[in-house]
Every structure is written in structure tokens, then in C-alpha cells.
């Protein structure tokens, strides 16, 4: 059992608005607080797209109903990543991950 108050969810259950809380906080947080709302909007859109379209064989286009939301969220996040110096670390990690791309995307060599 988790200790009382050890997570946002258990805090929520203590409040009078437990149902509202579950709906509101079901997504994880963003690294940058100022991007949280944009992230939430995008995540909700993506999840709907993934379960209702992508898994059913439609919606294979990159440019879908969530792209505008992703652009907005991404723009917010990029600033925060730069500020913390994470953008450089990401570049290096991407370079190291190229082998996996070849392996799992099944790209022709």
C-alpha cells in the first residue's frame, strides 16, 4: 500500500472531486511546468488517434489531427530543453541510437 499522500492520485481520492481528478490528471507531467497544458491536450489527442485510428489500420499519415497540438507543445518544450542543456545530450543519444533505427524500422541498408 502506498502511504497516504504519497502520490497525486491518492491526494485526489482524499478530495471531494475524486472523479474530476482522475479525468484531469491521468497524464504524466511535463518536465517544464509551463508546457503542461499543451502536453495534456496533445497526449489526449494522440491516445485517441492511436487507439481509434492507428491500431485499426488507418491514420498512417504523419500529418494528422494532432499535429498542430504537437507543434505547439514541442515549441514550448524545446525552449525548456535548451535552457537545461538537455538538447545536446539528446543529440548524442540519437546518434548512438541509429543502429536501433536500422534494426527496428527495417530500413533498407
Amino acid at each position: 500500500m502506498a502511504k497516504k499522500g504519497s502520490s497525486p492520485l491518492s491526494n485526489c481520492f482524499d478530495s471531494h472531486f475524486s472523479c474530476l481528478c482522475i479525468v484531469k490528471i491521468k497524464m504524466s507531467q511535463s518536465l517544464a511546468k509551463q508546457c503542461n497544458e499543451m502536453k495534456e491536450r496533445y497526449d489526449t489527442c494522440f491516445l485517441k488517434w492511436y487507439s481509434e485510428k492507428y491500431l485499426r489500420g488507418s491514420g498512417t499519415e504523419d500529418n494528422n489531427e494532432c499535429s498542430a497540438l504537437f507543434k505547439e507543445y514541442s515549441k514550448c518544450l524545446q525552449g525548456a530543453l535548451k535552457e537545461r542543456g538537455i538538447d545536446k545530450l539528446l543529440e548524442d543519444a540519437r546518434e548512438d541510437n541509429k543502429e536501433n533505427d536500422t534494426l527496428y524500422l527495417g530500413r533498407k541498408k
Partner: peptide, 14 residues
Amino acid sequence: PWNEKSTHVVAVDT
């Protein structure tokens, strides 16, 4: 937050 066992994860960003 449904996952009470992963409180060490503080943020997930796409």
C-alpha cells in the same frame, strides 16, 4: 498518476 509504483518518474515528454 494511476501508477502509484512509479513515483520516481516525475515527467514524461514526447
